[in-house]
Simulated scan of single mutants.
Amino acid sequence: MTYSVHLIKLFFDIDDHVFRIGKAEKIKNLWKLAFLLSSFSIFIYAGMGLVGIGTDMISNGAVWLTPAEYELRKFWFIIGRIAFAITLALGIIFIPSFLFYLITAIPYQKLIIMQLVVLFVMLLERIIWVPLVVYAGLDWYVSPFSFGIIASYLTDMSFLIYLFGSVSLFQLWIIWFQIKFLGKLATIHKGWIWLTVLVLHISLWLVTALLADADVHLIGGWFE
């Protein structure tokens, strides 16, 4: 049986598609979709850099820079955003897939299908956030779709705000989807699936919070 990957269809009849993925002997469109989503990721993050999202450290020192120096710094910032987008896309597609493969023994390509859906949802979340920061000035960690806005009312600790800001409704849907997908295809106990997925996401949230907390220092050092 051949299964042709169509990401949008996976959102409307998950059980049927996961069943067909489990029975499939050959997967079509997998690498084309991986390339398209990676390219889409580059487009989104480069576009964010072009409109000035995340360039606060550069803009704050712009009065002491010549126009040429400012444009050069902005250029390198956009290059950095592109490199980040490539790393993010490839990391999301391949690293968790390999981890889940080691634990569940589900064929690697079928796990990549799951992670393509995850990447698509994460990029969708990022697209929705862009107008919120452009028109409402809301940083990602206080998005109305995340728990960071609640944390900001309860504490002034930036690390905790970033941590809870990493937890969004989109992320919770991703956890549900991964557990459902793996539970349908894996033969191991579901408790191991829950544990693996939750530990992976909690680890990613912690890393995101740590990086966000250090971001000002990293960017400041980069452009000194």
Score class of each variant (00 low, 15 high):
Y135C: 00
M57P: 04
L200S: 06
P144G: 06
M122G: 13
T155L: 06
I175C: 04
I193N: 06
A68Y: 12
I82F: 00
L111T: 02
G183K: 09
S38M: 11
D56W: 06
S38P: 05
Y3S: 03
L169M: 15
I93F: 02
W129G: 03
F100A: 04
V130Y: 12
L99F: 08
I106A: 03
F120L: 14
K180T: 10
I103E: 02
L172I: 15
F19S: 11
L119H: 08
E25M: 04
Y153G: 08
A151V: 12
P144N: 06
F170A: 09
W205H: 14
H17Q: 14
P144V: 08
L36M: 12
L195G: 04
A24Q: 07
L119T: 05
L119N: 07
G52I: 09
S39D: 08
W76E: 05
L36E: 06
F223R: 01
D13E: 15
F181E: 00
H217F: 11
I79D: 08
A186T: 08
R20A: 12
W192K: 15
L204K: 08
T104H: 01
L37D: 05
F181V: 02
I44P: 01
F100Q: 00
A46C: 05
M114T: 07
L111H: 05
F11P: 05
L50E: 10
N60L: 14
D13A: 12
